[in-house]
Design a protein around this nucleic acid. Structure first.
Lengths: 161, 161
DNA sequence: ACGTATAGTTGAAAATGTCAACGATTTGTT
DNA sequence: AACAAATCGTTGACATTTTCAACTATACGT
């Protein structure tokens, strides 16, 4: 990310207000990097008619873990009704399929179709590049470390990969 | 944060889906920690009738940097019209004041009143505790490192404090 | 002096988030 | 076995937030 905000408009130079104490606030830092990253990600995914949200759902559907919609909602921090809309759209496009849960017929597991898997392959590559763009201020070791720390903060997972 | 999501409902245990590849995705990690953090922050700030947004504006107003609304919008990644609404509300409550810019009379600088400064003092303490709660999975050194990496990713600022 | 650009503001439109209800099912209790 | 309570997906209503185009006042470049 840093400095030369890739394309146009208000070239995000290091801002006078960086000096303010809010620059030490975790919530603010997360919000800002997340906002900047979303722009880059969504632009990269637009080519495949995906957004961050539908991309996430597609990944989970393709994970082999056969997640139910409820599990997706919990994991993605979304309301179940939002998952309905996202899966509806992906299903209409033939990228995922719903199946009744094996032990619980109320639940529906979502799995990616072959077509969905193929699209995801391409989209992942675009997302990978987008992430590199967002992290271009950090050397590779620090990028990995940042992600490890985020995982640890969320799940207490050991930082060492 | 981790494991024992402080109060009630769906006790966010380490989730089955953590195994999915999306757990390696920066955008997802940022979204998720940001979402979790926002809940904690907003709950902590509610006591002062503030939300993350208004809290941010109040901090900038109190920074001594005399930011204009446009500068705030850029820095907080918000639309200028949203700043108007936020400053309107804080001004109505007597926490900040608008003043015409010295060199540019189109611009309006926003500064905190004494009352605003006092409220901010208390709110900051609450926010500090909230942040500690979000980062309770990380030892202090790693918390500092996480924030330093986020700053560096955003502004290329040296990671060493 | 004149055209162009920018700050703040307003309001409308679109997108998102939140929440309560419902049918179908499962689970727990007796 | 029967019944109450809880859960899953879904729908639809409502609130909040985002996005954007206009407008006025002011500044800037030539």
């Amino acid at each position: 990310m840093t400095i030369e905000a890739q394309d146009g408009q208000r070239t995000e130079q290091t801002h006078k207000l960086v000096a303010a104490s809010i620059s030490q606030d975790l919530g603010f830092l997360l919000a800002k990097l997340h906002a900047a990253g979303s722009v880059v990600n969504n632009r990269a995914l637009a080519e495949f008619d995906l957004k961050e949200r539908s991309y996430s759902v597609l990944i989970l559907a393709n994970s082999g873990l056969e997640p139910t919609q409820r599990e997706m909602a919990d994991f993605l921090s979304l309301d179940p009704s939002q998952i309905v809309a996202l899966v509806d759209e992906l299903e209409k496009r033939g990228l995922v399929a719903r199946a009744p849960g094996k032990q619980d017929r109320r639940a529906k597991t979502v799995t990616a179709t072959a077509k969905g898997g193929k699209l995801l392959e391409q989209a992942s590559e675009a997302a990978r590049k987008a992430e590199a763009e967002v992290l271009d201020g950090l050397p590779a070791a620090e990028s990995a470390q940042l992600k490890a720390l985020l995982r640890k903060a969320l799940w207490g997972v050991g930082a060492s990969e």
